[in-house]
Amino acid sequence: MKRFPMTVESEQALREELHRRKTVDRARIAEAIAEARELGDLKENAEYHAAREQQSFNEGRVQELEGKLSNAQVIDITTIENTGKVIFGVTVSLINTGTDEEAVYKIVGEDEADIKDGKISVSSPIARALIGKEEGDVAVVQTPKGSVEYEIDEVKHI
């Protein structure tokens, strides 16, 4: 079974969603199904069909969350000594050597990636180019428009 890296924050968020779906959402949906059954003929009962569809979606998401959590390799970056090297879970400050633009990214698991929030997947081209490098090193990232060089300004374990 292949394990997938995940941050502690992401694991906690998935566990909270799973708990909510199993307790709050299941009860709410079961109540909606019961109310819709009381309305009569189930074949032409739109409320019943909508509630059953909600139930199906919720149960599918519960299974998906349980699968992700069972295959997760949770990495707590705070327990790892900060050596200045880029590893999974660190926050990296970069300077584009061509444009002097600064960027800050946190390297996270694939399911956690959100570029708008500054989180990039460990399997992204930028992260792959950065992993193993240290502060002061230059990483070359291959993009569709050509190579881009980034200098690693700072590595933070937060």
Rank of each mutant, 00 (worst) to 15 (best):
G89D: 14
E81V: 09
V122G: 00
E44L: 02
A72Y: 14
T91D: 07
P144F: 02
M6V: 04
A129W: 01
Q142M: 11
K22S: 03
D111P: 02
N45I: 12
K2C: 00
E9I: 01
R52V: 10
Q63I: 06
G89P: 02
Y48P: 01
V140E: 14
V138E: 15
E64P: 02
H19T: 10
I158Q: 14
K43C: 01
I80W: 06
A13I: 03
A30E: 15
E16D: 13
D76W: 09
L65M: 11
D76S: 09
V148F: 04
V140I: 13
E38G: 15
E53C: 00
Q12M: 11
G136Y: 08
E35M: 12
L39Q: 14
K106S: 14
E64C: 00
V108L: 13
E135A: 06
I80E: 08
Y105S: 01
K145F: 12
Q63E: 12
H157R: 06
N96Q: 04
K119N: 06
L130A: 03
K68T: 09
R3F: 11
Q12I: 13
E59A: 05
A113V: 06
T23Y: 08
E59F: 05
D100Q: 12
G118Q: 07
K156L: 14
D76P: 06
E154Y: 07
E110C: 00
R3Y: 05
Q73I: 03
E9F: 07
E9Y: 10
K106P: 04
P144H: 05
E149C: 00
I75F: 10
I131P: 03
H157T: 08
Y150S: 05
E31S: 11
R21W: 06
A129V: 07
V90M: 11
A129F: 00
S147C: 00
A72S: 14
Y105T: 01
G109D: 09
I77N: 10
E135S: 08
E31D: 14
A50R: 14
D137I: 05
G84F: 10
E151I: 04
G67N: 15
G89S: 07
A27I: 07
I131A: 08
G109W: 02
I126Q: 12
Q142Y: 08
S70D: 15
I107M: 04
G146S: 08
V8C: 05
V104I: 14
L130P: 06
R15G: 07
G132K: 09
I29P: 09
L94A: 04
